[in-house]
């Protein structure tokens, strides 16, 4: 899973959000690393919706602008957890290993 897709899904863990709110939440969750442009966000939303990991739950007009609210499906929650577990296991390979000792080199 692409990092952008992962954070787009993760942004929806706490409930439905609209496009701009997903961008801001993903940026916040990634510590500012993932700053999705609108074009990239909608490509990710299309991919994730086609894979039935997301669904549109509400459409409304706010301040004269159309908004769609997206939410995770059960498959989306499962896919997000599976990806998180995979990354956790990968991280454990390094974090649960003792740090290599630094050898002192004697001067000749």
């Amino acid at each position: 899973m692409r990092e952008q897709s992962y954070f787009a899904l993760a942004a929806l863990i706490d409930g439905p959000l609209h496009g701009y709110a997903i961008i801001k939440r993903a940026e916040e969750l990634s510590g500012g690393r993932i700053r999705m442009a609108a074009g990239t966000l909608y490509a990710a939303l299309d991919r994730l919706t086609a894979e039935q990991l997301l669904r549109v739950v509400e459409e409304k007009v706010v301040n004269g602008r159309a908004r769609r609210y997206y939410d995770l499906t059960d498959e989306g929650v499962a896919a997000l957890r599976a990806e998180a577990d995979r990354m956790l296991q990968a991280a454990r390979v390094v974090t649960e290993r003792r740090a290599p000792r630094v050898r002192a080199v004697k001067p000749a």
Partner: peptide, 23 residues
């Protein structure tokens, strides 16, 4: 289209005159 433009407008800076090169 309307949804994407709405998101772009929300993401735009306060005094932004034109789309950025990245957009």
């Amino acid at each position: 289209g309307a949804e994407i433009v709405g998101t772009l407008m929300e993401a735009a800076h306060a005094n932004q005159q034109r789309p950025t090169a990245r957009e």
